[in-house]
Design a protein around this nucleic acid. Structure first.
Length: 845
RNA sequence: GCCGGAGUGGCGAAACGGUAUACGCGGCGGACUCAAAAUCCGCUGGGGGCAACCUCGUGAGGGUUCAAAUCCCUCCUCCGGCACCA
């Protein structure tokens, strides 16, 4: 009988489902709970290998925890709002709801074929009003707490997606979805006040040290971007725009005496008024227009020239009393600090370049230790610490100390963050409506809670020009003001889809609750998530937003904890070699198989190993792998080929190897069953069995699934060897013990095969609920050990002795060993280092 | 430029300061077979030697240590993130 996954797998999937083995309920005592969660997928149409890897890792963790006696919450759902659905409507004329639901049906079937142990009763889709109504309620509560607000500002705009974007969704100046260059537009939009939590979100990262990947922590720290500095006011020579001073933020107050001019952002509200007062309005206006038109990307590109125009106005350096010119400069950003910087060319590279270009004075006010800088000959700004000079009373003060002293004398200490508020409104259809009403008399008013959900109408006209689909809808916006009852207009923007993913992990604990976002006792019992698994691409998007929402919900009284995800595992990408034709671009592996481009016959070029993607045509369809090898092989391969956090290179031969291994296990069980009673006792096999259990335990603890599988391969090889020893097979009981251990330990990785083999072995119940095996330390212990003997740190031989042999025993054996003896003969042993049951190092002189 | 990570056989990779290369892939050889596939067994870092064995070897160079792939310093290369953030 041959291993046939196609017969085995659907059969056991049916059994699991019928016996409801993966369904869990909330119980009062939660100490054995384990909440395992994977980042839920966007229902794009098909599962890809990245999903298979992500969910195979999660499933191993969930199944292992279950066998260890934990009550495991392991849910799955759909991040169902988003632009691709809307684009499908435009391209193919399907309604986004229909497109999304069709995709969910297909992808759910794909996941079920892979045998993941989800509690499917908890499945949710964020596009359902039963889901997003709670998000709308939360939005209203955040509005009432001033955590959601509307403001006009320059915002990121993607012309292709025809909507605004949050800063986190701009990657290298391009849209995170379509990678179109992002424009800056001045628009009034909705924001979440995530900056109110900047300090807490930053400090919270310390507690995640060692539990989250250091890379994610570093990325979030950098994204929040805390800088300590000073706020300093520079009085204006002539008041402008009702202001008598310009405020700047600096991290180098110690260089204040060297500020020889000021630079302000083109968007700065004082830019034009100052130019008017300074008599250079026309030139400044033209410069502002040109700079804004160029766009933020061009303006802030790496090699962009620093450019500016003098306003003609001046302000007073508070330290020197000098009147210094005010420039509008392209490199100054309105969003950071106060949009104005004191320019210290001697000690800031940007100011230095600007000063050299426009012939502005350079004054050295910090001298490096043991050197004297001359402004005339400097080729770059000196940005490091030193001793203050040309700074009046402060001369001779170390610059670090000077920071505090100058701040105290001329300004006040200020902490600035790079993090900006989360722009969450979107001018698109397929999202949750923002539950707000615009009333001519009352202003912006939240919808009544009793009116929620504000349903997304099905009959909007998607696509077309001008404004969002909801804005063009004939009736959606028509409403009465919840406050005064007068005629009012609904907000027609929808929410960023990252809003849905910021709390879905909370909804899983009570997915059918109709009275609130979730039940408090469910949340108290299950949250926080014990193990989160997902891609690193969400390091500063989803993972930061979810931490923010958790704190908001805590402050609104819903939750009692700060961090949603106790541990995070960020899995690497699934990659594969690419192929291309010099003329026709990327080719599928099948097209490239002949070595010639099917279109033009030119030789195929083999490219780098890159993440699987549609555009590079190097994807492998999980359906194909399941169809040819079965789900267990697919799962085992993605777990074995690399440790989870590293990128994995797809290798067809490696997949076959995994299938070969599973077949080997299959045949091993058949051979073991066919074995007669009796046989020669083999303590070595027992030892190997118990050692393997111990090794797999350690590997599971650290998520080293690749080495856990390797250990099981070794044990499998050892059982094969013990079946055909020179003195006949080992004792049946010992072989049985080893084989049962293999089936149990392998079951989280290859659950279908192991379920089948477990039943063949007459195992009790289902293997997925069987107790995880325990090793016997006594049986795992080696009786005799080959001690490594080193002389002066070099391996010179091995001596086999009892494992508990003393240092003196090993040394005596070593000195008597013909291979080792010559290295110590005639020398004095000045030191001897002994590691019990392992090694002896003799230092001979 | 700054931050994070990684450089180990032909390839994917292993080794919580202690036998470098486990396990898998590929390759070579053998058994089984009329033959092939499948399967099973063995070998497989470089150099030297008939051999036992010797010697070199974890990106480069230094250091700490009885002992370094592992810890420290300097540098090189690659990957990821951020990037005119004052």
């Amino acid at each position: 009988l041959i291993y046939d996954p196609h017969e085995i797998e659907p059969r056991w999937q049916k059994v699991w489902r019928a016996r409801r083995v993966f369904e869990v309920e909330t119980t009062a005592l939660a100490q054995d709970k384990h909440y395992v969660l994977e980042m839920f997928p966007y229902p794009s149409g098909f599962i890809h290998m990245g999903h298979v890897r992500n969910y195979s890792i999660g499933d191993v963790i969930a199944r292992h925890a279950r066998m260890r006696g934990k009550r495991v919450l392991y849910p799955m759902g759909w991040d169902a709002f988003g632009l691709p659905a809307e684009n499908a409507a435009i391209d193919a004329g399907v309604h986004p709801r229909e497109w999304t639901e069709r995709n969910i049906r297909h992808m759910r079937a794909q996941l079920q074929k892979l045998g993941y142990s989800y509690d499917w009763r908890r499945e949710l889709a964020t596009c359902h009003p039963e889901y997003y109504r709670w998000e709308q309620k939360l939005f209203v509560e955040m509005f009432e707490r001033n955590l959601a607000y509307r403001k006009g500002s320059y915002v990121n705009y993607c012309t292709r997606c025809r909507t605004v974007l949050a800063n986190e969704q701009v990657e290298g100046g391009t849209c995170w979805r379509c990678h179109t260059q992002v424009e800056q537009r001045e628009l009034t939009q909705w924001f979440f006040r995530i900056t109110a939590y900047a300090e807490e979100l930053l400090r919270g990262l310390d507690a995640l040290e060692g539990k989250w990947p250091s890379q994610v922590l570093a990325m979030q720290r950098h994204w929040i971007g805390r800088s300590e500095g000073a706020e300093l006011d520079f009085a204006l020579e002539q008041p402008a725009h009702g202001q008598s001073a310009i405020s700047v933020f600096t991290t180098r107050p110690d260089t204040l005496f060297g500020a020889t001019f000021m630079s302000i952002a083109p968007e700065h509200p004082l830019a034009l008024p100052l130019a008017r007062a300074g008599g250079n309005e026309a030139e400044v206006a033209a410069f502002i227009q040109k700079t804004l038109a160029a766009g933020r990307v061009a303006r802030t590109a790496e090699k962009a020239e620093k450019e500016g125009v003098a306003t003609g106005a001046r302000c007073v350096n508070p330290a020197t009393g000098e009147k210094i010119p005010i420039f509008v400069a392209n490199f100054v950003l309105m969003e950071y600090g106060s949009g104005a910087v004191m320019a210290v060319p001697a000690h800031d590279q940007r100011d230095f370049e600007f000063a050299r270009r426009y012939g502005l004075p350079v004054r050295v006010v910090v001298q490096p230790p043991g050197a004297r800088l001359d402004p005339a000959t400097m080729e770059a700004a000196y940005v490091d610490a030193g001793v203050m000079a040309n700074s009046g009373n402060f001369d001779g003060t170390p610059s670090e100390e000077g920071k505090r002293a100058v701040t105290a004398r001329f300004g006040k200490p200020v902490v600035s963050y790079r993090l900006r508020d989360w722009l969450l409104s979107r001018q698109r259809y397929w999202g949750a409506p923002i539950p707000m009403v615009h009333c001519a008399a009352c202003g912006v008013v939240p919808a009544r809670l009793s009116d929620l959900p504000i349903r997304l109408p099905d009959d909007a006209e998607i696509g077309g020009e001008g404004g969002s689909p909801l804005e063009r809808h004939p009736t959606f916006a028509q409403t009465a003001c919840p406050k005064c009852g007068g005629v009012a207009r609904r907000e027609t923007d929808t929410m960023d889809t990252f809003v849905e993913s910021s709390w879905y992990f909370l909804r899983y604990v009570s997915p059918r609750e109709t009275g609130d976002m979730f039940r408090r006792d469910d949340v108290d019992a299950w949250m926080p998530v014990d193990q989160y698994v997902g891609g690193i691409e969400h390091a500063v998007m989803h993972l930061l937003y979810a931490r923010f929402f958790t704190r908001v919900l805590r402050d609104l009284g819903y939750l009692k904890f700060d961090e949603p995800f106790t541990r995070l595992l960020a899995q690497g990408m699934v990659c594969k070699e690419t192929y291309a034709c010099p003329e026709h671009g990327w080719l599928y592996a099948k097209e490239a198989a002949s070595g010639k481009c099917p279109k033009c016959g030119q030789a195929v070029v083999v490219g780098a190993v890159e993440a699987m993607s549609k555009s590079k045509k190097n994807g492998v369809d999980p359906d194909d792998i399941v169809a040819s090898f079965g789900a267990d092989t697919a799962r085992l391969f993605v777990l074995f080929a690399a440790p989870p956090e590293k990128d994995l290179e797809w290798n067809e031969a490696g997949v076959e190897g995994m299938h070969r291994f599973l077949s080997r296990v299959w045949r091993l069980v058949a051979s073991a069953k066919a074995l007669g009673e009796g046989g020669a006792p083999s303590p070595a096999l027992r030892r190997k069995t118990h050692k393997t259990i111990r090794r797999v335990d350690e590997d599971m603890e650290r998520f080293h699934f690749n080495t856990a599988i390797a250990a099981l391969m070794e044990l499998t090889n050892a059982v094969y060897a013990s079946l055909q020893g020179p003195s006949g097979p080992a004792a049946r009981s010992e072989i049985d013990e080893a084989v049962r251990a293999i089936v149990l330990l392998l079951s989280p990785f290859a659950p279908h095969l192991c379920e089948e083999l477990w039943s063949h072995l007459g195992g009790e119940g289902l293997v997925c609920l069987a107790p995880w095996p325990k090793f016997d330390a006594e049986l795992a212990r080696d009786e005799r050990v080959a001690f490594v003997v080193q002389v002066n740190g070099k391996l010179r031989g091995r001596v086999e002795l009892a494992a508990d042999a003393s240092e003196a025993d090993v040394r005596a054996a070593a000195e008597a060993d013909p291979k080792i003896a010559p290295y110590v003969a005639g020398k004095q042993i000045v030191k001897s280092v002994f590691v019990p049951a392992k090694l002896l190092n003799l230092v001979a002189r």
